[in-house]
Design a protein around this nucleic acid. Sequence first.
DNA 1: GGCTCCCGCCACAAA
DNA 2: TTTGTGGCGGGAGCC
Length: 353
Amino acid sequence: MSLIVSQDVDSLAMQSYSRKEKSLGLLVANFLRLYNRDDADLIGLDDAAGKLGVERRRIYDVVNILESIGVVARKGKNQYSWKGFEAVPRCLDELKEEGMREGFSNSNINNSEKVSNDDEREESFNLTPDDPENSASSKLDNKKEKSLWLLSQNFVKMFLCSNENLITLDSAAKALLSDSQDPMNMRTKVRRLYDIANVFSSMNLIEKTQIPETRKPAYRWLGTKSLTENGSSLFNSSEPKKRAFGTEITNLRTKRNKTDYSSDIKQIEFKNRNEENTEQQSKSGANSYVFGPFSPTSASSKQNNNNGPKGRLHDLEALASTYKPQYCNPEITGLIGHYAGAMKLWYSEFNRK
DNA sequence: GGCTCCCGCCACAAA
DNA sequence: TTTGTGGCGGGAGCC
């Protein structure tokens, strides 16, 4: 088996980082799948990050964008409440109304149009935008103006209020840049619009397409129909899941990531804690694995039904295949190789005796 | 080679 | 001072 393991280790090392599996779109789909259920109420950011196996920072991106269309609402520090897809149509109506008032029309998509400032978030930013003396508040104003939440709302307004069927991110960025047309600002804004577009695409609110004449990538508004019709099933936690963040790791940490064992361990622990709730359960075989002295803490209570050495060996191999990308940093894989070798020795001794 | 967008640094606010 | 929040842009994967 050590041969198998060492081959696995080698192949692991060969595997590369996959960007698609870490996308914000996929993350948001998993987020929605996680919380789109009847008993969902409060969402803790740490909890979400832990369950989805991502850094907290990414959860901020997700909730900020989702908040902009009313799926979640900020309750307080570290906490959001789940509003659900039912809240979206109403939120979009309000955004459309606002957008119309603010002049988000076809004519000013290529204008540097302003930014809305009449919303509940103002409370948390505590703005006094009319006070030029107040540099702190103007800083906040500036920050707010650049927030993902607001950018997201304005992006939606562009779709809702303009007659334009297709909107490119470039034109959106130009239209939404309130201050300058500085290329650096443009680049930054476009980056953020990519984030937002990915989230909305994964929710089927918009769809990526091309402008027929120029073949330039553009987005088309699909609206809430597919969201309200499919949303409940598409993101329903009772539905069979696709790969969920943190429950099945297929991505490797290579260049893009610092070596972070704690998150590896956290993900293992989370997986074991939640195995019974995941689709992975039946095929992983890992939940029946008896861990050795180095088992994840939460796994210790799981007992193996298959007590024979061969069964264990089989489980070990199943475990190796189930978890193999998890251990893809040199130190961890080296460690696994070491213990796999030791266990092989132990099993052969055991069989002989 | 340009497009796309993940990742995490770091500034700033809040506790 | 610590913790929470999230803007920002470098740079790497993708096409």
